[in-house]
Design a protein around this nucleic acid. Sequence first.
DNA 1: AAGCGATTGTGCACGCATTCACATGCATGG
DNA 2: CCATGCATGTGAATGCGTGCACAATCGCTT
Lengths: 235, 235
Amino acid sequence: MTTDRTDAAAVAEATTPESGIADPIPEATLARLPIYMRGLLEVAGDGVTTVSSRRLADLSGVNAAKVRKDLSYVGTRGTRGVGYEVDRLIREIGMVLSGEVTPVVIIGVGNLGRALSRYDGFVAGGFPVLALVDADSSMVGRRIAGVIVSHVDDLGKVVAETGCLLGIVATPAHAAQVAVDGLIAAGIRSILNFAPAVVSVPAEVELRKVDLATELQILGYHEHRREAANPQQVA
Amino acid sequence: MTTDRTDAAAVAEATTPESGIADPIPEATLARLPIYMRGLLEVAGDGVTTVSSRRLADLSGVNAAKVRKDLSYVGTRGTRGVGYEVDRLIREIGMVLSGEVTPVVIIGVGNLGRALSRYDGFVAGGFPVLALVDADSSMVGRRIAGVIVSHVDDLGKVVAETGCLLGIVATPAHAAQVAVDGLIAAGIRSILNFAPAVVSVPAEVELRKVDLATELQILGYHEHRREAANPQQVA
DNA sequence: AAGCGATTGTGCACGCATTCACATGCATGG
DNA sequence: CCATGCATGTGAATGCGTGCACAATCGCTT
């Protein structure tokens, strides 16, 4: 797989046939694939074998054309006049988004960290939480969701042992940057940050952010906006 | 992502003078305002009285031009050659995003719901969790983060009593639609959904979504991509 | 009083994402 | 074996968000 490491490699993988690396799936599409997957698994459970883009769109709450364009990126082709084969779609999408099980480490076992470590959706989605670390020594040794909490100083060791590839930061804001640096030092290059803080990472590290307070604030904005517009109406 | 904005109304109120309702702040800008706010509060704590767009940009991890354009939406004007007045910016941004305290109700007190109800960031951001409900009778009556859990059947009553304007759905996927319908029936028109399910709401209801599993899947995709490209290198 | 350095405010162009609209092509029925 | 209907795949138009680049403008210094 890919022995030519020239700068032309990037160009070459545009429409690589089957040489290994291939697709540059748009971020927006990527974010919808898991949604499609859920819908597909649902109809598959009902014994349905084919779906139209229209049907899948309804299940996912999006536009039918968008579904088709999205699916065109994953490579699967549907059958005109019929639709897409459910089983195959599930297989192909599943292959695109981390086909196998990808273990996760969580830094910070406060309220949020504990909840995340017990969140069923992660393991169900193929992301078992295999490691927990915290800076608080009184937490170390505790067992949460079947996993023993280690000290953050042992992060490198724990990550190496469990083979975690993804890191979740669930620390207070002031500890976020340190936590991220630690993850990177431990070899993690994909990080999901729940701490309400701006952290900086080297370019080769993928950092995504979930900001709970911000979500509420955006909702609050719209809510106040509506209140200002309408007089009032207690349901 | 998430959030469907039908700008039918937004167009009409384009540049209302001061008739009450006014600004149509872009969604992207809105999402950054809380970040700016954090940076501003930080420098304000250090006694700084003015910031340049450059400085604020560095603190927020964004582009300076973006900061200026964003701030132009909130109305505040800076002083050329000097920068923006910190105190005023804090006040103005604070006014834009739900100037006052906005109470929140959480449906579902499983792992996630409990964690959210104890999350300090909410109350710190002006979103105290004043009500908790669950469908499980064994949960009803329990006290979590100082709030007694009520039964979901009493949702309307609880919402009315506490004056909650925002709803958070933290139920399992299969209960999400019912939960959302309940919130709407109770008069809530701004909802944050953590359940991994597609739910439908009437047009006048604002629905945002936080999909934890999807976030990991996107990270997983990029991680696998990198692995496929590079040979391997255990730090 | 006037110039100078600094920083804002914004016009413009580019790129990504969404959506429409339609030709292409497959499967089924007569 | 051909016609017909239905759903795919995609070209093209539109809109939003981003970031550059620069003129306008302010405070400060001389």
